[in-house]
Amino acid sequence: MMRARPGCGWRTVLAAALTMAVLAAPLIPQGWAYLGDPKSTQRIDPTNRLWRELRQGAAGQTQVQAPEAGVLIASAGEEWRRLRNGPLRTWGAYWLAAAAGGVALIFLWRGRIRIEGGRSGRTVERWRLPHRVLHWYTAVLFLILALTGLSLLYGRAVVLPLFGKEVFGLYAQGAKVLHNYLGPLFPVGVILMAALWARNNLPARVDLRWLAEGGGILFRDRHPPAGNMNAGEKLWFWIVVFGGLTVSVTGIILDFPGLGQTRETMQTAQIVHAASAIFMLGFAVGHIYIGTLGTEGALEGMVHGRVDVNWARQHHLLWYEEITRGGGPEPEAAGEGEGEPAAGA
């Protein structure tokens, strides 16, 4: 899917967003039920001191050699179950639905942002090959991980009823294996991105204005100037870096259970992992929207490396001025087969 097909693309995204919102709906009452029933785990018999101590996780001695075998009652498990099956799942679904819905609304409201004045036919280099590879490496991983990860979190409610336990079990097994093996590759991308791109993403005064003007997306008539990266991208970048690291660290904690971490550590890691992954995912929806359907001419930079001069002027005026000033690389004419056709189909 290197070549964007805006025509069918937007419909797909919209459809996906709506399905998500609809599917998440049944989970909502469940979530409220969990949140609204705090006493569900309080069953302590006050007369029994031993029992009480154990409920508090007092550890004993045992001949069974396994981590935490000495803990008789791991009450934290109750809390974990409550969080995962409750708020995490519910709010995660809300959030993703909101992201998808938001994108859909923006699209309805604003439509695709065209290159002002059409394509110039001349392009400038924006992403060199290694950077593009890095982006897609990370992006594809992220998407696979998201899909497989979400299958674990929501598959039982969403997919299982459609296909039955056996088929879903097989699928989930595959998803888990994929997720667990690909997961550790993800931080590589994140770290490289952080190393290579951080400089471009340092906040600047101009970002404030960009933000104030809604990034040129919310309001039709504004075209805030931006440097190499605009504030929105910068925000995304830092979300990717910090979110990615969080997801990766927690992911690794979950992925290598033999490192001596306790069950409680893993429980916490799991919640943080899934929450931050879903948090990222919401933004990723936005990012992807902007990179594809939302903005004409953006994707080609990440696909072929070069962007139309008009696009550059429109979206990254300061950057464009910077690179063309004093001996910067000359824009070239778009060659055959390179870049988007000048006029939309």
Binding site: Q65, A66, P67, G258, L259, G260
Partner: peptide, 8 residues
């Protein structure tokens, strides 16, 4: 290889 404790 004998158990979780040993990590194998």
């Amino acid at each position: 290889t004998s158990g979780l404790a040993a990590g194998g």
